[in-house]
Design a protein around this nucleic acid. Structure first.
Length: 487
RNA sequence: GCUCCGGUGGUGUAGCCCGGUCAAGCAUGACGGCCUUUCGAGCCGUAGAUCGCGGGUUCAAAUCCCGCCCGGAGCACCA
């Protein structure tokens, strides 16, 4: 039964990759949690590193204390999410602790004329750049640049008064590439950094910190969304100036999920405004929400690997994730009965009481048994099941075959072969005490009763027979709370 | 507007670089059957794509060229 016939999902070969020499990194800004989209870079980077027996680095890009502020809790959340995915990293870095390194390269770059410090303000600079003209201080001698650099470091400029820029090509067709900004001043008295506080006033921008780090850390392959495409174009000028070799970069397309917000800002906003209950709100596609719903990490990994490194945009259907997930959990998830409201009480006729009914916990594992006790000749079934089948002969699963009437049912026999074409209905003894609430994926809750044995499945994904898979989230006294996984 | 990147069945993906074996493969979803103490899983089968549109090159185009349309991304002293 457990034949391993599933073709191991294989990533296509990586350009320029050699076994033992691949180094990849995942470089999140710790300003939110991981979701299905952001886990893509992590999974691809990690899997490729593993595939080529290389190295995988986790690097927190926390160099904006002002607009995209990092938060201490997210460093930890991201680590948790990665661990949950089964991702292990060989190195971990915080860019906020590497500022002296970035400073060092500014000085080096000034000396080779690769960067300059401009006192042009944003508007003035933009005017020049749009006309493919340099700001006057672009060609100031090295000594002046160094002096300005010292002035920046020593606090001689206030926010916005000076910016380090990388010389590119002023006639580059894309204005966004022309002399891009590398470091700026941030008033950390006002915008304190969660890790280094107000220790530094000069902060690198993404392209500077990322470019320097990718080189210093020996990154050979970069995986990121297409929104970073021009950043590669920009950073190449710097690499060229330093005589470095730019890593192979893969820019995959945009990933969307039917109806679910997949942007950090939208998630953060929704949580702040109380639209979502938290990072694990089941309507979200965060890793924390998926975990809570009983989606296993292996399913997420397989989904991402199946998408590969395609550059076109994808609107993926959650059904796909569910299908993959189901294949993994179905062989292990135990089976239970739960009857949801509205339900009806049926009196059983022609049976002996009391009665102990034995059922398999899983159809494939006939050695594991669960039991239901009938003390009274009375069961509860769902109203819709009852309505559809009044007047018919039905199979009460595990109990036997019955002619179902309006409020009673008469036992006929226990012949399973004969029951083949009968509707199979699940049921519970009328004196069942265990209650269950299931949080559905649309945010609504449904109530019902369940087998007592279900209380022992805390944190597990189970199948409520004929209903759906769900994860048992909490068990307090006689009440079980579960979260819907999928059909 | 400018600069990039895309457009293969409902969804995802393979093929496109190096034209024919592709009247397009796989997965998922839908439908039907078998099996089964579940409406799940498994097995079998069915339906579903004139490969965005138009033109060109060629004996031959999803694959090459041109034009157009549509979608996305970027155009921050964000990452």
């Amino acid at each position: 039964m457990e034949e391993k016939k599933k073709q191991e999902l294989k990533l296509p070969p990586l350009e320029g990759a050699e076994s033992g020499k691949v180094v990849t990194r995942f470089a999140p800004n710790p300003n939110s949690v991981l979701h299905l989209g952001s886990s893509r870079a992590a999974i691809l980077s990690y899997e490729y590193a593993k595939m080529y027996k290389g190295k995988f680095i986790l690097r927190f890009e926390d160099t904006d204390p002002r607009l995209k502020r990092s938060d201490l809790k997210f460093y930890r959340y991201i680590e948790e999410d990665l661990e949950w995915l089964g991702i292990k990293w060989d190195e971990e870095h915080y860019q906020s602790e590497r500022l002296p390194i970035y400073y060092d390269y500014v000085e080096k770059a000034i000396k080779i004329g690769a960067v300059y410090i401009t006192e042009c303000n944003r508007e003035k600079f933009k005017e020049h750049i749009m006309m493919q003209k340099p700001c006057p201080d672009r060609d100031l001698p090295v000594e002046v640049q160094l002096k300005r650099w010292e002035k920046m470091l020593s606090g001689g400029y206030k926010e916005g008064e000076a910016v380090v820029r990388v010389k590119t090509d002023l006639s580059h067709p894309n204005p966004a590439v022309r002399d891009w900004p590398a470091l700026r001043i941030i008033d950390t008295e006002k915008y304190s950094h969660p890790i280094v506080g107000n220790k530094y006033k000069v902060w690198p921008l993404y392209n500077w910190a990322s470019a320097i780090d990718d080189h210093l850390m020996g990154i050979t392959h970069i995986f990121r969304g297409q929104e970073h495409f021009v950043n590669m174009v920009r950073q190449r000028y710097l690499y060229e100036a330093f005589g470095w070799k730019y890593p192979h970069a893969v820019h995959y397309g945009r990933l969307m999920i039917e109806g679910k917000p997949l942007s950090k800002s939208e998630i953060e906003k929704g949580i702040k405004m109380g639209v979502y209950s938290g990072y694990d709100d089941i309507r979200l596609a965060t890793l924390k929400a998926l975990k809570r719903r009983g989606i296993v990490p292996e399913a997420i990994k397989q989904l991402i690997l199946a998408m590969g490194i395609n550059t076109n945009d994808a609107v993926i259907s959650l059904e796909n994730l569910y299908a993959i997930n189901r294949k993994i959990i179905d062989p292990i998830a135990n089976r239970y009965f739960a009857v949801f409201k509205p339900y009806v009480v049926i009196v059983l006729k022609n049976i002996e009481i009391p009665k102990v009914i034995q059922l398999y916990k899983h159809p494939n594992r006939k050695n594991e048994i669960r039991t239901l006790r009938l003390e009274k000749a009375e069961i509860i079934v769902e109203k819709s099941d009852h309505e559809k089948n009044v007047g018919k002969e039905v199979r009460f699963m595990g109990l036997g075959n019955f002619i179902l009437e309006k409020d009673y049912a008469t036992f006929t026999d226990n012949d399973l072969a004969r029951a083949k074409d009968f509707p199979h209905l699940h049921w519970l003894p009328s004196d069942t005490r265990t209650k269950i609430n299931v949080l559905k994926d649309d945010g609504n809750e449904i109530e019902g009763i369940a087998e007592d044995g279900l209380k022992l499945e805390l944190n597990n994904v189970v199948q409520l027979e004929r209903k759906f898979f769900c994860r048992i989230e909490s068990v307090i006294d006689n009440t079980i709370k579960a979260v819907y996984t999928s059909k």
